[in-house]
């Protein structure tokens, strides 16, 4: 059976792509952020995943308001990075893993998750930036799982946790490649808000409490409604739902491998976290 080696949670702020293009890793503004990835790279060298299942949110790339699925699973042979309109460099397409995708679809629908399947899917910085940060020299095939944080109502934290759990179980029952090593990625967060008079909102104490809960009490954040989460973390801070799903996929007890938190990157409280199943 396939095995989940762990979950990586990472901010996906667009400006990261520009900083990487300029080779700004050692710049004083960027260094405290990029330094957080050294331990991630060492861990990836150890666990050697074959494929990444990425929880992400779309930012007006693959989905428009004409059709907005709550949960979508990419089943494409490859995922192309589209022109985002505001000028970050596009990257080469990432290969998919359609066999694993379709297995996830079968199990999720069997588990009564009413998901949308996508045999074509454009991806944006929410996929490309974590990929560049985690695998600067290449990458692994991907299975993107999109969670709606564009238009209210969003899926509840409780539901995102259940989705993550179901995906964890589905991966564990994938027997086509019994030795397949899967890494989960939760893309986004932490607290930030881009728009309105409250633009620039950051909530350090909530972020830290949330990250602590992922190890000690992973269902803690499921007590909050969608509105509560916007209030506590900012309009885009709700991307913590991706972190939550990525944590839930690991099941029971976890061990924290590395954690880095830095304010600000662009308008965002940037977080990088790796969790692995406790032995």
């Amino acid at each position: 059976m396939a095995r989940i080696v762990g979950s990586i949670m990472s901010t996906h702020v667009p400006a990261i792509a520009n900083a990487l293009e300029r080779h700004d890793e050692a710049d004083p503004y960027w260094k405290p952020f990029f330094d957080g990835y050294e331990a991630v790279h060492s861990w990836l060298d150890e666990v050697q995943p074959d494929v990444a299942v990425i929880f992400h949110n779309d930012h007006g790339m693959n989905f428009f308001l004409d059709k907005m699925p709550t949960f979508a699973v990419g089943c494409a042979p490859e995922y192309r990075h589209g022109d985002e309109g505001w000028g970050i460099p596009t990257v080469d397409p990432y290969p998919g893993h359609p066999d694993l995708s379709w297995h996830l679809v079968e199990v999720l629908v069997g588990d009564e998750f009413d998901i949308t399947t996508c045999q074509e899917m454009l991806v944006d910085h929410a996929v490309t930036n974590p990929m560049k940060l985690l695998w600067p020299g290449g990458g692994v095939p991907i299975v993107p799982v999109t969670v709606n944080t564009v238009m209210f109502p969003y899926p509840s934290a409780k539901r995102c946790f259940a989705l993550g759990e179901a995906i964890g179980r589905a991966i564990s029952s994938y027997d086509v490649e019994p030795d397949l090593r899967v890494v989960i990625v939760g893309s986004g967060g932490l607290s930030h808000q881009l728009e309105g008079k409250r633009a620039g909102f950051i909530n350090k104490s909530f972020d830290l409490r949330f990250v602590e809960s992922l190890t000690d009490d992973p269902r803690w954040v499921t007590q909050f409604s969608g509105e509560d989460l916007v209030k506590e973390t900012g309009s885009q801070g709700v991307e913590l739902l991706m972190w939550l799903a990525a944590r839930a996929a690991l099941g029971g007890s976890v061990r924290r491998v590395t954690w880095n938190y830095h304010i600000p990157i662009s308008n965002t409280a940037a977080g990088t976290l790796v969790l692995e199943p406790a032995a």
Partner: peptide
């Protein structure tokens, strides 16, 4: 207007999220 789509309008004028903030 939704911030994700408005960002694409702002991008035409090379405004980043901190200009917008």
């Amino acid at each position: 207007g939704h911030p994700y789509y408005l960002a694409k309008f702002a991008g035409i004028f090379h405004l980043d999220v901190q200009d917008l903030g």
